[in-house]
């Protein structure tokens, strides 16, 4: 009888962890890579990037990825799509507007974030409908 017990499931644990990781990012605590996007530095945690993006998975998964401190991503008109994606990784919220959706779509395609790509397609498609 003494072995019987309960599992206590903290239902908001994943969002609490993600929220703390986002705060660590904003404060630059334990961030271990700088993404250069059009010359603009974005600090992040490799562990979060690799968990969210197929592109980062292929970059960081091997031993060679440990030594990558700075990573240049494509600049140009697509560059403004990267910051919303980084925010999404750390918050689960994807900010889209008709003006930014094409850039976010391009960045998500580059980063191999298929589900975000699909969400962008749905958003763009819906914005064309009357």
């Amino acid at each position: 009888e003494g072995a019987l017990g309960y599992v206590r499931e903290f239902t908001r644990h994943s969002s609490d962890v993600l929220g703390n990781l986002n705060e660590l990012r904003l404060r630059g605590i334990l961030t271990d890579v700088t993404l250069l996007v059009g010359g603009q530095p974005l600090r992040a945690h490799k562990a979060v990037l690799i968990a969210c993006s197929g592109f980062f998975y292929s970059i960081f998964r091997g031993r060679a990825g440990v030594g990558v401190d700075v990573l240049s991503l494509p600049g140009g008109p697509e560059a403004r799509g990267f910051a919303p994606l980084l925010d999404f990784m750390y918050t689960s919220r994807l900010r889209l507007s008709p003006a930014t959706a094409p850039a976010v779509l391009a960045a998500a395609t580059y980063l191999q974030m298929e589900h975000v790509v699909q969400a962008c397609h749905r958003f763009i498609q819906a914005s064309y409908e009357p």
Partner: peptide, 22 residues
């Protein structure tokens, strides 16, 4: 299931909150 008889949901915060950047 190793003596587990029930799952109890905890709706409150699960970990400490890192202070927000000022």
């Amino acid at each position: 299931h190793e003596g587990v008889v029930a799952t109890v949901k905890e709706a409150g915060r699960s970990i400490h909150e890192i202070p927000r950047e000022e």
